[in-house]
């Protein structure tokens, strides 16, 4: 759809008809033009010069009106998913995989996760992504969007130091709610990135089960395991206590398995393992998806001015090639012997 910034300029458009009444080249008097032969090339040049004049003036006037193509969005069929990234912002995420504060070239779990997620997002242009974070309380960082710059900014913003608590249950509620509310077509997935878990209260568990029952979605947990901590797949030793308070990660894993959703858990104890896990998630979440891509407003004035300039160049060339029918070299009236 074309719009005009200065529509009043179109009032000058009748000027484009001037070449129909005014000639561009200087006239050369030739008697009985109707009795002289006309060739096709001359006829074409005749009409062409008129057309160039009309086109040039018309394009100039249109350029003054500053036309533009309205922006918007177009439906795009790509490969990806509706993805909600739920990122743990607890203070332990600021430690390294070795469980200490990063020093020198060492990378914290949070920064490694950010870097790897940034690469992951950059390699998946068709995903619609939303971001949520949780620590003491869940936070909606970015609603579902296709804007890559907004997503990258939101991931970068997670570099701020985290808080002490890990309210994973309410974080999951928020993320699954975001994924469930997303009206777009295509698959849905929630990726939980955390280095720990906490006890999920019974009422939150009910909410999560309800959400899982309402809207099917894929659930991934990328567990960033610190050195010395228990793995989520590790079975307790005989006689070892196995309660949610002592082994919250293992019990969260069991709970997520019980939601009857497609669920995959990855345990990563190094940045390389995180990359491998994220790549695996990417492979599994490559399905056809219809997304909308934003189309920015495009100015068309330059195109009008370019057309006007080309027309003017053509007319200038015509003037350069102009010549009279006969050179004015009038001989004397009377020649005497």
């Amino acid at each position: 759809m074309i719009g005009l910034t200065q529509p009043w300029a179109l009032a000058l458009l009748p000027l484009a008809a001037l070449p129909l009444f005014l000639r561009w080249l200087r006239a050369s008097a030739v008697p009985r033009l109707d009795l002289r032969p006309v060739d096709g090339a001359s006829r074409a040049v005749d009409h062409g010069l008129k057309a160039l004049g009309i086109l040039g003036l018309g394009a100039l006037v249109l350029g003054l009106a500053q036309p533009y193509l309205r922006g918007g969005s177009v439906v795009h069929r790509g490969i990806g998913t509706n993805l909600v990234l739920l990122i743990d912002r607890s203070s332990s995420m600021d430690d390294t995989f070795a469980g200490r504060s990063p020093s020198g070239a060492e990378e914290s779990k949070a920064s490694a996760a950010r870097r790897i997620l940034m690469d992951f997002i950059a390699g998946r242009p068709d995903d619609r992504i939303g971001i949520a974070a949780f620590s003491t309380a869940p936070m909606l960082v970015l609603p579902m969007t296709e804007s890559r710059s907004a997503i990258a900014s939101a991931v970068s913003a997670l570099a701020e130091p985290g808080l002490s608590q890990t309210d994973v249950g309410r974080g999951l509620t928020l993320a699954m709610g975001m994924a469930a509310q997303e009206a777009a077509t295509g698959a849905r997935a929630v990726v939980l990135v955390s280095d720990g878990a906490a006890v999920i209260s019974p009422e939150v568990q009910v909410m999560l089960r309800n959400l899982a029952a309402q809207q099917p979605m894929n659930l991934y947990w990328l567990y960033l395991r610190s050195k010395g901590s228990k793995g989520i797949f590790e079975q307790p030793q005989p006689g070892e206590a196995d309660t949610p308070q002592l082994r919250p990660e293992r019990h969260l894993h069991i709970f997520l398995q019980s939601l009857r959703l497609p669920y995959h858990a990855f345990e990563a104890d190094s940045p390389g393992a995180v990359e491998a896990a994220v790549a695996e998630i990417g492979r599994m979440e490559s399905r056809p998806i219809l997304t909308r891509r934003p189309v920015p407003r495009r100015e068309l004035g330059w195109l009008c001015y370019l057309i006007a300039a080309l027309a003017a160049a053509g007319l200038t060339a015509a003037r350069a090639l102009e010549r009279p029918w006969a050179e004015a070299r009038v001989k004397p009236l009377l020649v005497l012997p």
Partner: peptide, 9 residues
């Protein structure tokens, strides 16, 4: 060249 011929009549 290009000639813009005009019939004087």
């Amino acid at each position: 060249g290009l000639i813009d011929a005009q019939d004087p009549e």
